[in-house]
Design a binder for these strands. Structure first.
Lengths: 229, 229
DNA sequence: CGATAATTTGATTTTTCTCAAGACGCGTGG
DNA sequence: CCACGCGTCTTGAGAAAAATCAAATTATCG
């Protein structure tokens, strides 16, 4: 797992914020990052920000995919979330990132200064409410994830994961996964081998099809556990 | 695990809210629930609210302890949080509870109407900010918990848990745990036997002392993993 | 085409779960 | 005061799940 240093990414952080802070209405923040944010590109496996770094920006995925993760001293890694196009990440209530963000594949990311958001929030209650609602949605998905990590077997986790990704990426029952098996493993609290074996087993069961290793076709929806909401 | 029905609890929900909504300053909400909330008692293993129930109230633990949990169809249970005296729970951004809350031991709970909070928030930006900050803290502790569930061995989980409880309950290295082994197991994503064995092993290692089964004395702080922040 | 990374598969070990039984603690009623 | 019952906790033995170690296969990219 080669994650390049943050240095070169920071180099290109020539942010253009400062304009557009004046008149943002109800859809204030999140719909408007496109307008006021700087566009940045991150190639595969580069760090967008690191754990413990100051949280000076708010990010939105324009294209690509991002993992939010933390690595323990001994190398064990937990991925707490995947961020897909249209999704926001990197906003902390404190001023330091508690997890790192890395591009899974080449990604275009919109970046807006945290100070802009804070200033906006100070004057506009709707912005605060939107930020809060966003935090609440994150909380909910963390709770779902905890259910998965605490209660489900390996096979159940993989099924829940594939189903979730299909829903989020394509809305149907066919997906092209952007992430590697290792990422899936670290998201599900399993090893890469266990993930691979679970997938193989699902293919044998004809629960899923696997035209290529990243392309999943969900076959028997019946086989899907309760984490489906 | 006998959790009594919510019916009898609801019976006594003669809430007295409606007053006190006028003039709440910066410390608006959370410091003032004592003043405007109704006091209720819940005995051991009674439900405070159920999963999927309308979220009409906000709660604060006056004394006792509460578990926030969800039970899957097949009986597997995940406890996502323990709430101790002084802590707030039960506030959802949507209008339905996504988890249940149950008293672990006899508890006194302060209850305030959600509508009161919402009305307050509509007029007072600080209240929104406080609610948001609270949600953000919850999010953070869920993320910590996910790290635990996804990365740590049984022994490490138990150690992290005991350390956390000692810190939260007594601040020192001696605690009287309010919850049973089964609750600990469901919080840590382990079985009761594995929790018990891990604790026995810690006692043998002299990492902890165990005067009684609920009374924990932390001995070798060195043995504590990185989830210590 | 060859090198490198990603994925799969196999054999084995370790961890955790499961099933079962015993020990302990505690309140109640004799 | 003691015996009993009940819930909780601990311990043991065996089974199952997942991890680990190792290697083979398949994809990807210059």
């Amino acid at each position: 797992m080669h994650v390049q240093t943050v240095a070169q990414a920071n180099l290109s952080r020539q942010l253009v914020t400062g304009r557009g802070e004046r008149s943002l209405g109800v859809d204030a923040l999140f719909g408007s990052i496109e307008l006021i944010g700087a566009r940045m590109s991150f190639s595969r496996n580069t760090e967008i920000y690191g754990d413990e770094e100051p949280a000076d920006y708010l990010y939105k995925v324009a294209s690509g995919a991002v993992r939010i993760c933390k690595v323990l001293d001994d190398g064990r890694r937990q991925i707490t979330a995947f961020c897909l196009p249209g999704e926001i990440f990197g906003f902390e209530v404190g001023d330091v990132h508690r997890f790192a963000a890395e591009a899974i594949i080449d990604s275009r990311i919109l970046v807006i200064k945290r100070s802009t958001v804070v200033a906006l929030a100070a004057r506009n209650g709707d912005v605060v409410r939107q930020l809060w609602a966003h935090t609440a949605r994150e909380l909910q998905s963390m709770q779902e994830h905890m259910l998965l990590l605490g209660c489900l077997s390996a096979r159940e986790r993989v099924v829940a994961f594939l189903r979730m990704m299909a829903k989020r990426i394509s809305g149907g029952n066919e997906v092209e996964l952007p992430m590697a098996r290792q990422d899936i493993a670290d998201y599900l609290g399993l090893t890469i081998e266990t993930v691979s074996r679970s997938i193989s087993q699902l293919v044998n069961d004809d629960t899923i099809g696997l035209p290529t290793s990243r392309h999943i076709v969900l076959r028997s929806l019946a086989d899907f556990s309760q984490l489906n909401a």
